[in-house]
């Protein structure tokens, strides 16, 4: 029995290692043909052109912009909601809202994608001048809403882990409730809140469906979120569904950008988990 369970556990480690191995192996072949500096600093991404260019910057800027927009939504709203749930809401309210929020996580991401494309974009086009039908702004906002439940849930846990003795210390000094929330609870839960946001950001960077549907498939080096641009994940979907020849350089580019994405999210996760562990050790 013990051996069986060990094999099950070992399998998950093996699969993860195998994925990383494949990513690195195929990327290796890619980088044998394309110099790393051309890849990282090139401004053109045209893998299926006659004269293909493999500069990843257009994909990277689109990814970072949508993730950044997501954070612009998730940070303020997430913080306010977490404070409300942790400090103000009566237990009955909290026990209703938290599961409802977590239900949001059960909505398939493709639904969010079409919601962005067919509902949010036409609506925002009436408000934001020059907003294209396919753009970065709307999927960015939707991404923010998508990661909100996770961000709220983790930061609320961190806030509730702040011991009551600290709150009482604040009240004992004559702080009002909002002052205790801002001066005691948020600083006390700071590393946990930061971890929540970084892990949320890492989710936003890795999210695929919303971006493939609503941000477009066209690699476009732009800092204007009103325009559409393919993100790293959208490109991977597009190429995987297309009919690129197995073993071609365009095919290998999937693994190269996949590896880049892996490194970015791994970095975020490491920082996030480090901060989370740190906040557990506090008090």
């Amino acid at each position: 029995m013990k051996t069986f369970l060990f094999l099950c556990a070992a399998l998950s480690v093996f699969v993860t290692t195998a994925i990383v191995f494949v990513l690195i192996r195929d990327s290796w072949e890619f980088f044998a043909n394309i110099p790393l500096t051309d890849f990282l600093f090139g401004t053109m991404w045209t893998p299926v052109f006659a004269n293909p260019q493999f500069g990843v910057l257009p994909l990277l800027t689109a990814t970072l912009q949508t993730a950044g927009l997501a954070m612009l939504v998730a940070v303020p709203f997430g913080l306010i909601m977490a404070i409300y749930l942790s400090e103000y809401a009566r237990p009955a309210v909290r026990e209703t809202i938290k599961p409802a929020l977590e239900m949001l996580e059960a909505v398939p991401t493709v639904v969010y994608g079409y919601f962005a494309l067919l509902v949010m974009t036409p609506f925002l086009q009436q408000i934001v001048p020059g907003l294209k039908g396919i753009n970065l702004l709307v999927p960015g906002i939707i991404l923010g809403i998508m990661i909100l439940p996770y961000v709220v849930s983790v930061s609320e846990d961190a806030m509730r882990a702040v011991p009551n003795s600290l709150r009482e210390g604040g009240y004992g000094l004559g702080m009002a409730k909002w002052q205790v929330a801002i001066r005691i609870v948020i600083p006390g839960a700071f590393s946990g809140i930061t971890a929540a946001f970084i892990l949320g950001m890492s989710r936003a960077v890795g999210e695929t469906m919303v971006l493939a549907v609503a941000a477009g498939q066209n690699p476009n080096l732009t800092w204007d979120p009103r325009e559409g641009a393919a993100t790293i994940t959208a490109y991977i979907v597009q190429m995987s569904l297309g009919d690129v020849a197995h073993g071609s350089i365009a095919y290998q580019s999937i693994f190269a950008v996949g590896l880049l994405l892996f490194v970015i999210t791994l970095l975020f996760n490491i920082i996030g988990f480090y901060l989370r562990r740190k906040f557990r050790e506090a008090y």
């Binding site: 011991p163 003795s165 600290l166 009482e168 210390g169 604040g170 009240y171 004992g172 000094l173 004559g174 702080m175 001066r183 005691i184 600083p187 006390g188 700071f190 506090a282 008090y283």
Partner: peptide
């Protein structure tokens, strides 16, 4: 509480 301060059983300095 602004006029009557309090020190608690367990030291509870803020982080």
């Amino acid at each position: 509480r602004l006029r009557v301060g309090m020190v608690f059983q367990k030291p509870n300095p803020f982080p």
